[in-house]
């Protein structure tokens, strides 16, 4: 199982818009809620009310600051979950076959009942997308909500990952990145979507959309905008204004 299947035509994944993510952590908690109740063991929390709480999460939102030379620093919220890599090193290292990449859609999953909890796949993942659950002692990772997206007990419109459904800002998109005509592929093409750590050779399916330019407001010439300016000089006197007003009111 641990060998990777031949690349599938269908590549389901997420597209995350770093221009839009406000860092609200909604996706983090909806993921926690869904996956605590569904797919395999619940996501546990150790020392939940104590000095050092530590729980399992399949999706976490980091925040980075980007210093720029001639513009104010940017702040970018950065959600991260499994990228469902085409060339997933986490899968090939797994000794038991618990980790696998689905042949039909490329989703990378852990079969918890076969997982010995060796942790090697977490080491193999460059992105920190896998977490060992301290209570269940099995490896946990984003399932791309495989138990939602094909779930025929759910209404059609809800067959989407929990994190995507909940994202208030609409910064998360789900779809088939193997199909160049899909909405997500088009979005990636239009907005210059990119891979995380391409040098790691993992060929992630998930893509990130870059933040748009920040602090670019040009200084238009206000004077050119105002046809009958009341006064060109900054110290406009009401008298100047009165003349303008008269003319302007006349035109109304």
């Amino acid at each position: 199982m641990t060998s990777l299947p031949p690349p599938s035509a269908r590549k389901l994944g997420l597209v995350i818009d770093l221009d839009t993510c406000v860092g609200c952590h909604a996706c983090v908690i909806s993921c926690k809620g869904w996956n605590t109740e569904n797919y395999g063991a619940p996501l546990s929390d150790m020392d939940a009310y104590g000095a050092s709480p530590e729980g399992t999460f399949l999706n976490r939102v980091h925040t980075f600051e980007v210093a720029r030379d001639s513009a104010p620093p940017m702040v970018v919220h950065f959600p991260k979950s499994c990228l469902h890599c085409d060339n997933a090193p986490c899968v090939t290292v797994c000794p038991t076959g618990a980790s696998y990449k689905r042949a039909e859609d490329g989703i990378v999953l852990v079969n918890e009942s076969a997982c010995i909890g060796c942790g090697l796949c977490a080491w193999a993942c460059p992105y920190g997308a896998r977490e060992m659950d301290s209570a269940a002692k099995v490896m946990k990772k984003c399932t791309l909500c495989v138990d939602r997206i094909y779930n025929d007990t759910l209404p059609e419109e809800d067959r989407t990952p929990a994190c995507v459904r909940t994202c208030p800002a609409g910064a998360r998109h789900f779809g088939d990145l193997g199909d160049p005509d899909s909405d997500v592929s088009q979005l990636v093409a239009a907005r210059g979507g990119f891979d995380l750590m391409p040098e790691q050779g993992t060929a992630p399916v998930n893509k990130y959309l870059p933040p748009r330019g920040r602090d670019t407001l040009e200084i238009p010439d206000l004077a050119s905008l105002c046809a009958p300016a009341p006064q060109a000089a900054p110290n406009a006197q009401p008298t100047g204004l009165l003349g303008w007003l008269d003319r302007a009111l006349e035109r109304l």
Partner: peptide, 26 residues
Amino acid sequence: GKLKARGARVIGVNPIRSGYNAVADD
């Protein structure tokens, strides 16, 4: 999210650039 999807400009006036102000264009 709607403004972003349309590419409308958002200006954030705030001593701190976090959250909504982080996604503000200016």
